[in-house]
């Protein structure tokens, strides 16, 4: 009888080296970690130190590879990248508004909002302002945000067979989320316009919803 517990203990020792057991032990350690300070305990106004560009580049590279799987065309892939950016934009808008609370106001005009995206949002995510903001000459409902060196594209060379793809669609998704969040529904597409000096130059074409144009007329 007294000998019985011994083999059972030995078997439990053996199981501790088993990978299945290791998974359980790591689960308990992660529940320990969750008791430590979380992102919600941190001061919201303090800016986190800037992240290494390489970290973003590797993560984004994986995101692009993932979004390449089972897609039918370039359009669908851009839509996927844009959808990732949309999630970022929703959160960044919220955070930027909280941080800018001193001089925060609700943007009611298209131009004001685009300026806000051009400067505050761009700075919050990419640490620089976008290079230009232009209004389309022939289309009343189109604006263009121009970035000579979009961060998402920093290390990406698009192969020739996908030449119409612009991975900065991710950033277009960010803009779309911010505009949606401010009640300015719009469709944003990214178009790469390489120049000799800026091979990565991207134009984000903002096509406003007719509803916004109509509202804008009333406010004049």
């Amino acid at each position: 009888m007294s000998k019985l517990p011994t083999p059972s203990r030995a078997s439990s020792d053996k199981s501790s080296s088993h990978p299945g057991f290791a998974v359980r032990s790591s689960a308990t350690s992660s529940s320990l970690a969750s008791r430590r300070a979380t992102v919600y305990d941190r001061n919201m106004n303090r800016r986190a130190p800037d992240l290494a560009l390489s970290t973003f580049a590797f993560l984004f590279s994986e995101m692009v590879q993932y979004s390449q799987k089972n897609v039918k065309g370039v359009q669908e892939m851009e839509n996927r990248l844009s959808a990732y950016g949309y999630h970022v934009g929703q959160r960044v808008l919220e955070l930027a508004t909280v941080r800018e609370i001193k001089n925060a106001k609700r943007e009611t005009r298209v131009l004001g909002l685009l300026q806000f995206i051009n400067t505050t949002i761009w700075k919050a995510i990419f640490g620089k302002v976008a290079d230009a903001l232009e209004k389309s000459k022939d289309q009343e409902d189109e604006y263009m945000i121009i970035d000579n060196n979009p961060v998402a594209n920093s290390y990406i060379s698009v192969p020739k067979e996908l030449s119409s793809l612009d991975c900065a669609s991710f950033q277009a998704g960010v803009i779309e989320a911010v505009m949606d969040g401010c009640q300015f529904p719009a469709k944003i597409t990214a178009h790469s316009v390489p120049t000799e000096l800026y091979p990565l130059k991207t134009v984000f074409l903002v096509k406003l919803d007719p509803l916004v144009i109509e509202r804008e007329k009333y406010m004049r």
């Binding site: 984004f60 692009v64 990406i156 060379s157 996908l162």
Partner: peptide, 9 residues
């Protein structure tokens, strides 16, 4: 390392 390895394609 920058322009080849970080390129998703």
């Amino acid at each position: 390392a920058d322009y080849v390895i970080k390129n998703p394609f």
